[in-house]
Design a protein around this nucleic acid. Sequence first.
DNA 1: GAGTGATTACTGATCGATCAGTAAGTAGAG
DNA 2: CTCTACTTACTGATCGATCAGTAATCACTC
Lengths: 215, 215
Amino acid sequence: MVRVTGGTTAEAGERILAGLDLWAEWPTATQRAIVGAALESFAERGFHGTSLKHIAQGSGLSTAALYVHFASKEELLFALGRRGHAIALELVRTAAAEPDPATAAQVLVYAFTRWHAEQRTTARVVQYEQGALTAAHAEVIAALRRDTERVVRGLVTRGVGAGAFAVPDVRGASAAVLSLGIDVARWYVPGGPWTPDALGLLYAELAGRLLGMPA
Amino acid sequence: MVRVTGGTTAEAGERILAGLDLWAEWPTATQRAIVGAALESFAERGFHGTSLKHIAQGSGLSTAALYVHFASKEELLFALGRRGHAIALELVRTAAAEPDPATAAQVLVYAFTRWHAEQRTTARVVQYEQGALTAAHAEVIAALRRDTERVVRGLVTRGVGAGAFAVPDVRGASAAVLSLGIDVARWYVPGGPWTPDALGLLYAELAGRLLGMPA
DNA sequence: GAGTGATTACTGATCGATCAGTAAGTAGAG
DNA sequence: CTCTACTTACTGATCGATCAGTAATCACTC
């Protein structure tokens, strides 16, 4: 696992982000072309708004060729959603493993926010398009989300116990911290007032206040 | 405009919410049946995942009858999105009109959060389905969003000037406050740990900390 | 207040277009 | 000769939208 302790919040967060590889599941160039095109189109038009023609044209293949690599359009969405959620879970787990809860929270929010800004295409699909999944696939995704929430809640609980945080409601404060980062995928556009790095630092500070961290 | 000052945060917030009427634009029973069915289906399956058959069956009409009342499926989404955004704008405007910025912020976050929890069906369509609009319609929605952000930013600026808030970045803190409420529509389910009222009160407190309000 | 023409609200049937997915065949590598 | 990756050509189903036609209600005239 990636080392967190040491350096500034931004440096520690960047180490975590550098250790994540969305593409690890898809080794070949053709697979990456398909997944990349699907990601783009799902993010822009939504799952139901995306036709196989969009994915085929975006990846330079025929629609039939897609079925060599994926069983269905829904399987493609599922693979994407599962990978994205696994990445997010790995991110929060790595950050939360830092011994000092205050540092862990800062790094977690920084990296989580920055990831949702930098990878907003992926994040949109991961956060907003999973409703089109089959019941069985949706349950796999829901389990990954529960794991992520549990890690954050565990960190907040640990920080409260250590006197580093003071919150009125651990579960609610944890949900709020995750919400801040996730919603970035909805509204963030590059070229605005913040770089992903600056937004990550700002949100880390705001989350620290929200958690009652001494300034 | 609804009176804000006086009573608890919850009482003032409830007065604002009681003054909002989503349905004012659609007076007849048939129109309300169509809009209601569209709202349900758009929220559950998304705009592109909803067929006219869904809306027709949900409203007890034939698909052809829908065109008596709406020019197209996209027009229906636009009407819904415009009305929902207008409601949200009215909500924040009313809350922000309260003279004391600290009270205004508490009431604003309470009412905004509670609305996104109680009206999560509407809120999902309003926040997440507008990508399917034509460019001209999307611009109308974008303008309403900018207005809402501007009202919140104005309130935060006023609070900082009055010494009621202390934030590192007015624009960023305003975005964060709105994000907290909006993201509720994504994850909130009735029957969980919080009623909409309780969540509104919790988020009002968390937003107060985020804005650097003295406890 | 009876008769008339326009308007509104709907229906079942159907339009051309597009959808996800498949069948059959080909090119190239080993 | 077989396997993998891909093509063109196609399927039945469904999409949003429109058709001609019907029933009811309106406004207005005599």
